[in-house]
């Protein structure tokens, strides 16, 4: 008996991939990983275009570098640096999880049923990686703004 008419009801990428209210921590990590992957991917293309200026000659490269030496471009670089570091480190965590590392051991199913995979060391590892990312953001800020733009040293 075919149903007369149904609603497809797929969430789609925006409400599905980036659903971030009332969700577990790992889901944030997932959304961020995806976002960071796209940012790094776009940067890869931009980076190839940018460095291909060297084919034109040293002057072209120098003028590109001068053109990019402004707060807006350096903010972009800061975001890219953060995205690259986070994506790489979190990728290691995902790889470890797929190897069965950090996701706990099975337990006897008893109320209140705490999922081991969401309470095991992979979660601590994620916090450590976030902390490393923050430290590296601070370092990138020091390099990109304090030294390069503001010439403090």
């Amino acid at each position: 008996m075919p149903a007369s008419k149904t609603i497809r009801n797929m969430r789609g990428w925006l409400a599905g991939w980036f659903r971030v209210v009332q969700v577990n921590f790992e889901r944030w990590l997932y959304a961020l990983h995806r976002l960071a992957g796209v940012i790094v991917g776009l940067y890869l293309i931009a980076h190839i275009v940018e460095t291909s200026e060297t084919l034109v000659g040293p002057e072209a490269w120098d003028s590109t570098m001068a053109f990019l030496k402004n707060p807006a471009a350096h903010t972009g670089l800061l975001i890219i640096a953060a995205a690259a570091v986070y994506h790489g480190l979190n990728g290691v965590r995902l790889y470890l999880a797929a190897s069965g590392v950090g996701i706990g051991r099975p337990v006897r199913p008893e109320w209140p049923y705490t999922p081991v995979s969401l309470t095991s060391s992979q979660r601590n590892l994620a916090w450590i990686f976030i902390a490393v990312t923050v430290v590296l953001i601070i370092y990138a800020f020091y390099q990109l703004f304090m030294i390069s733009l503001w010439g403090w040293m």
């Binding site: 997932y30 099975p106 995979s117 969401l118």
Partner: peptide, 17 residues
């Protein structure tokens, strides 16, 4: 490994694991 499955499972199955 977004873990959304394990977060909502009412029976402690832990599909993500």
């Amino acid at each position: 490994f977004a873990g959304a499955c394990s977060a909502v499972c009412p029976k402690g199955v832990d599909p993500a694991f």
